[in-house]
Each structure stands twice: as structure tokens, then as C-alpha cells.
Amino acid sequence: MKIYWHIAKATWQEYLSYRLNFFLEVIGGIFTMLIAIAVWYAVFDGDGAKAIGTFTLAQMVTYLLIAGVISTIMFLTAQGDDINNDINRGTISALIIKPINVPFFWLTRDFVRKFFTLILGVAELSMIIFLFRDYFILPGSILNLTLFCLAIILAAILHFLLFAILSVIAFWFEETWGWRFIMRIVMEVAAGAIIPLSLFPGFWRTIFEILPFQYFIYFPMQIYFGKIDIGGIFTGFVSILAWLLILSCLFFILWKRGVRRYVGYGG
């Protein structure tokens, strides 16, 4: 475990040299969040509605603020790039001969990136939340907050696995950008980052509820607001764990076969 702590520290140092890049991307994420709030303000303002679906204006603003925070941390543009580049540029050769578990190495780096982004955005996001304090709703209870945090941690692992699977196919296809791009596009909408899934038309809602992306934002937010009962929360967590199990198995099958197939040229 100690070795991964050192990897985390080295990754942190590496990201520190790109802090301006990360910072600008975080600001971009915050800007997107503010646009989404402006859109929903206009919707409430236009019809003078007290609630849209089951969301009041305050709930919607809170939803978009927290969704913005989660998206800023998780949905950076270069998702899965590390794994893809390690494989098709051959830098994985240096990793597989080291006494480390390579997938766990990637997971460590991914979590450092997420944490680094969170730290960079904390001041700006707190300021935005302060500006919207009249609309900001606190979680229903301590239990809701705890379960919300737990759901986010599991979602972060799920997010890593999804991109890891699409990146590890670089053993066969060399370039995986296109596949990851599709997932990014679908994920941004199907996670409920700019609009809660319950407000989509029935057909789309059904599709988005089948996909695992709802566990990134929509499901944790349902817990946060206390909009689902304990049975729903239990079912949700069982589903996340099932997704994690299936995707982990799939990832390790691909990883094992990929490494067997891998040929590293050059010195």
C-alpha cells in the first residue's frame, strides 16, 4: 500500500506543474454550471412556476450547483488518456516490469487527479455556493449526507472503470479516442449533469435509467434531497455494486488478454 502512496505523491507533484491548465478547466466547468443555472432560472421565470416536476427553484439551483461540482471533478476532457497513451506509446513496458499492480497504479493516478481538481476548485465553488446561499438547500440529514458521499466515492470508481475499459481496448485498436468521446457525450446528459433525469421525456428517461451514468449525479442527488426512500437507496447501492462487479470482471479479462497480446518495441 505504501508504494501507491508514493505514486499518489509523485502524481500530485506532476499535476502541480500543470496547475494552471487544471485551474482553467475547473473555471470552464464552473462556467458551464452557471449557464445551466441561468437556463433554469429563465424556465422558472418564464412560466412563473413554483415547481418543475418535483423540483422547486431552490432545489433546482442546489441540484445544479452540486452537479456542477461533481462534473468539474469527474468529467474532465482527458478521461482515459493516460491508459490509452501508456498502451499505444509503449510506456506501459516500463510499468509492467515494475513490482506494482498496473490497473491499481492507474486508479491511484485517477483519484489523485479527481482530488487535485477538487482542491483547485474548492475556493471558487465555495464562493459560487455563497452567492447562491439563499437558494442552497442543505442535505435532509447527516445520514443522507453520509450516503451521498458514499455514493459519490463508488461513482468515482465506476467512472474510472468505464473509461479504463474503453482505454484498455487500445491493446487491439491502438487509438480509442472515438469510443471515449461517445461515452463522454452520452455521460454528460445521461448522468443528469444539466437536467435531472426525471424531467426528460419518458422514452429518454427509460434509456438513461438503464445506463450506469445516473449513479454519477442523479442518484446521489436523489439521496441528498431525500427524494428516495430507504428501499430505493438500498436498490441503488446494490445496482452500483453490481455494475462495479461486472465492469471489474470485464476490465480484468480485457487487461489479462491485452497484456498477453502486447508487444513492446524499442529500448
Binding site: 437556463v39 412556476a49 468521446f181 461517445i182 446528459v189 437536467i195 426528460f200 421525456p201 429518454w204
Partner: peptide, 23 residues
């Protein structure tokens, strides 16, 4: 992915206009 992106933008607006007639 690029085609989906445009399609999903329209789905997003469809969802908005399901709840309001004017934006």
C-alpha cells in the same frame, strides 16, 4: 459521437420545453 452530441442537445431542449412553452 459528433452526431450524438447534436442529437442529445436537441433532447436536452426537448426536455426543457416539456416543462415550459417559452424560454
Amino acid at each position: 459521437g459528433k452526431v450524438l452530441r447534436i442529437g442529445l442537445t436537441l433532447v436536452f431542449f426537448q426536455a426543457i420545453y416539456l416543462h415550459t412553452s417559452i424560454l
